[in-house]
């Protein structure tokens, strides 16, 4: 039993995409498709064995959220932005996420021929879906310091000057 647990733990560590139950893991994301691109952040967390994630653009607008089952075989998308909310686009995203979250350091060279995953020199995970001409780049973002709680009632400091502008 202990061996199984240790093997399972070893398997977890082997996955390319890092995910943690205690903290959010942030990846910078660059998605490049034929007629569209997305720069933003993918935030992921392990919750009750499932991987839950949210992809937002740089302004914080959500592109989609996803849930990957504990066995990493099922991917569910939700809150998909209207531009991506078409069954054929969602099917591609689900398949690519499944491949990405199942990629390990040991199986990276045996990937599906249509979708290639590689690790760049700076540690960025590059996934190329050659069938649909989509390229994804995931770069692990540095951990941010714990933010101090904001005082919700703080009135902003306002300084009004009357200098000549430009």
């Amino acid at each position: 039993m202990l061996c199984v647990a240790l093997l399972a733990q070893a398997g977890e560590c082997d996955y390319l995409m890092h995910v943690d139950s205690a903290h959010l893991t942030h990846y910078r994301v660059q998605l490049q498709a034929r007629n569209a691109s997305l720069d933003g952040v993918c935030a992921i967390k392990l919750i009750d064995g499932s991987i839950k994630g949210v992809v937002v653009n740089d302004f914080g607008i959500k592109a989609f959220a996803f849930i990957i089952s504990p066995d990493r075989k099922k991917v569910k998308l939700q809150d998909v932005i209207h531009m991506l909310d078409h069954w054929y686009i969602k099917r591609v995203i689900k398949n690519d996420l499944k491949l990405l979250f199942n990629a390990t350091t040991s199986n990276i060279s045996n990937q599906d021929k249509k979708t290639k995953i590689e690790i760049l020199d700076d540690g960025t995970i590059k996934m190329t879906n050659s069938k649909y001409h989509i390229q994804y780049l995931f770069t692990l973002a540095p951990e941010t310091e714990q933010e101090e709680p904001e005082n919700q009632n703080d009135e902003p400091q306002l300084i009004i000057e009357d200098e000549t502008t430009e």
Binding site: D79, P156, Q157, E161, E163
Partner: peptide, 17 residues
């Protein structure tokens, strides 16, 4: 229901930029 809150601070107006 997810919310994005932007708080503007140290606001200065009519200052040369």
């Amino acid at each position: 229901g997810d919310t994005t809150t932007i708080r503007l601070k140290n606001i200065e107006t009519n200052k040369q930029i």
